[in-house]
């Protein structure tokens, strides 16, 4: 039933500047890349990808950017929120050599997928890109998995100085990857899409959402592809058909906004 179930926040944790994780009771299965609709009572309800997957506890990690995320940021352990989902199609780990690229808060979406790749003994390289080092999170968590982790910052305050796409391009030219899995700013993902030509390219898109269950059409891209239902993770074949990919999104009124 697509109705918010009230649950209690079991833990909150500051991850980086203006970035926080909240965990809550939510027994059941969810795939990396799938998302919840999170209801902050009396404020708003917003989609968020899962960033922590345990049997009984799930978590989301987000940055303060608007009313809803600000309100969620201020909630504490014991506070109540409503949860619907999980929704959408997550990542499919097909290849044995995977390059993961996370940009900004997109890091939170790909991290559970990296964990699953390691569990399946797939070899993976991970590139995380942020503007500056105090926006970086999950570094230790990903390192502990034993994967090859590379950090990029726009300002050079940590790791490679420059965009994640630049480093990714070097990696793709040098190494063989079956798949690229990415979440981050859409312009970054579009660039990766242009660089990595193999079929198994998967990107997680973000659009303004209302219902989350495929009825209202608010989040549609291309020819009626619903980000909440056919996405949020799209493969190359689908992305090819989405003319708006990397170009524009829509605001709450449905107006096109340049990315």
């Amino acid at each position: 039933m697509n109705f918010p179930k009230i649950t209690t926040i079991t833990e909150t944790k500051n991850e980086a500047k203006n970035t926080k994780t909240i965990k809550f009771n939510f027994p059941g299965k969810i795939d990396p890349g799938q998302f919840f609709m999170i209801w902050i009572p009396n404020v708003d309800e917003i989609p968020m990808s899962v960033s922590f997957i345990d049997e009984k506890i799930k978590g989301v990690t987000f940055r303060k950017i608007g009313d809803a995320t600000n309100a969620l940021f201020n909630l504490k352990k014991g506070d109540k929120i409503g949860i619907r989902g999980p929704y959408g199609k997550g990542f499919k780990l097909n290849g044995k050599n995977i390059l993961f690229v996370g940009g900004g808060t997109g890091i939170s979406t790909i991290t559970p997928a990296i964990e699953e790749a390691i569990k399946n003994k797939f070899s993976s390289n991970v590139i995380l890109g942020v503007k500056t080092k105090n926006e970086l999170f999950f570094e230790e968590r990903i390192k502990k998995l034993g994967t090859n982790l590379f950090i990029c910052t726009d300002d050079g305050s940590k790791g490679y100085k420059g965009f994640a796409t630049k480093l990714a391009e070097e990696f793709i030219n040098k190494n063989y990857y079956n798949s690229v899995i990415t979440c981050g700013p859409e312009i970054m993902m579009k660039k990766l899409f242009d660089i990595f030509k193999r079929n198994d390219f998967q990107a997680s898109l973000e659009r303004y959402m209302k219902c989350g269950f495929g009825l209202c059409g608010q989040c549609c891209v291309g020819e009626g592809l619903r980000v909440c239902k056919e996405g949020p993770v799209f493969n190359r074949a689908k992305l090819k058909k989405i003319k708006d990919f990397g170009i524009y999104k829509r605001d709450a009124s449905g107006r096109k906004i340049k990315l």
Binding site: C216, G217, Q218, C220, V221, E223, G224, L225, R226, R250
Partner: peptide, 10 residues
């Protein structure tokens, strides 16, 4: 699914 031309075309 009446949001834009794409969804209505589908």
């Amino acid at each position: 699914m009446d949001e834009d031309a794409g969804s209505m075309t589908r």
